[in-house]
Simulated scan of single mutants.
Amino acid sequence: MMEGSMHQETGTQLVLMLPFLLMIGAYIWAGMITNRHYKTWPVTRYVFWAVGILCAASAVIGPIANRAHGDFTMHMTGHLLLGMLAPLLIAIAAPITLILRTLNVKWSRRISRLLKSRFFQVVSDPVVATLLNVGGLWLLYTTDLYMAMQHSIALHVFVHLHVFLAGYIFTVSMIYIDPTPHQRSYIYRGIVLVFALGGHGILSKYIYAYPPAGIPQEQAEAGGMLMYYGGDAIDIVLITIFCYQWYKASRPRTTSTYQPQYN
């Protein structure tokens, strides 16, 4: 009886994993197909996409996701994977660019118009993206929402979807890898980024001192520390990319390509 239950659970996990595997396969297929007409798609982007998708998958399927229901530390591990690391890796993989060069001109123009719409102008603003991302986490961990999602599948799915999308929107509002019609200045983004990182760090300390309802103190302390230090590790990568892009955009450009020859 137990063996049958284990086989059924394994089958369910494989079915749930299928959409993530299809996304990896579709990305690889799109890259290889478009290589016929455009510059070769970088191999590193395939890697970033695959690892990012697997990070997101591991937060909702598998051992981490299973243990997260009763272990707040595992829940926080899933949060870092789903809301921070996966969005960063996926953003670096430039999926919008790949989509635009995969589709025909008609559909590419439609997507371009959608990206230029008022809705995306508002959502992609760093302040709005920060409120959706960091503000959403404050709402999750300082109210009864965290416990409520443990008892509702629909709410559980919604929260996880929000965590990923908010994390992705925040990431692409700070670093521009894909085409970004509504670009903001580096100073503006930098200021918002500082406040966003501060809000995330303060929340981790708040969780450490004041656990969400129903969470044992020792789990809250471990989860808060993981959120603080793990979040910092991922943020360092985000900050490095941001500063590098700022440096490239602001460095003086040479007016001559002449190079003296010393033969």
Rank of each mutant, 00 (worst) to 15 (best):
Ile28Pro: 00
Trp29Pro: 00
Ala30Glu: 04
Ala30Gly: 02
Gly31His: 07
Met32Arg: 15
Met32Phe: 13
Thr34Lys: 10
Thr34Asn: 14
Asn35Arg: 12
Arg36His: 12
Tyr38Trp: 13
Tyr38Asn: 09
Thr40His: 11
Thr40Glu: 13
Trp41Pro: 00
Trp41Gly: 00
Val43Pro: 00
Val43Ile: 10
Arg45Gln: 14
Tyr46Leu: 09
Tyr46Phe: 14
Trp49Asp: 03
Ala50Glu: 06
Ala50Val: 05
Gly52Phe: 10
Cys55Tyr: 12
Ala56Gln: 10
Ala57Phe: 02
Ala57Tyr: 02
Ser58His: 02
Ser58Lys: 01
Ala59Val: 11
Ala59Tyr: 04
Val60Tyr: 01
Ile61Tyr: 07
Pro63Leu: 01
Ala65Thr: 08
Asn66Lys: 12
Asn66Phe: 05
Arg67Glu: 10
Ala68Cys: 06
Ala68Val: 10
Gly70Phe: 09
Asp71Val: 14
Asp71Phe: 07
Phe72Trp: 04
Met74Leu: 07
Met74Val: 00
His75Met: 10
Thr77Ile: 11
Gly78Cys: 05
Gly78Met: 09
Gly78Ile: 12
Gly78Phe: 08
Leu80His: 03
Leu80Arg: 06
Leu81Ser: 05
Leu81Ile: 06
Leu82Val: 11
Leu82Ser: 06
Gly83Asn: 10
Leu85Ile: 13
Pro87Ile: 09
Leu88Pro: 00
Leu88Gln: 04
Ile90Asn: 03
Ile90Leu: 14
Ala94Val: 07
Ala94Thr: 13
Ile96Pro: 04
Ile96Thr: 14
Arg101Ser: 02
Thr102His: 07
Thr102Gln: 03
Leu103Thr: 15
Leu103Pro: 02
Asn104Cys: 10
Asn104Gly: 15
Asn104Val: 14
Val105Ala: 12
Val105Gly: 01
Lys106Asp: 14
Lys106Arg: 14
Trp107Ser: 12
Trp107Tyr: 13
Ser108Asn: 11
Arg109Cys: 01
Arg110Glu: 12
Ile111His: 03
Ser112Cys: 07
Leu114Gly: 01
Leu115Cys: 09
Leu115His: 11
Lys116Asn: 14
Lys116Ala: 14
Lys116Val: 04
Ser117Trp: 07
Arg118Phe: 10
Arg118His: 09
Arg118Ala: 05
Phe119Ala: 13
Phe119Gly: 00
Phe120Ile: 10
Val123Ser: 02
Ser124Trp: 13
Pro126Gln: 08
Pro126Tyr: 09
Pro126Phe: 07
Val128Gly: 04
Ala129Trp: 10
Thr130Pro: 11
Thr130Asn: 09
Leu132Thr: 11
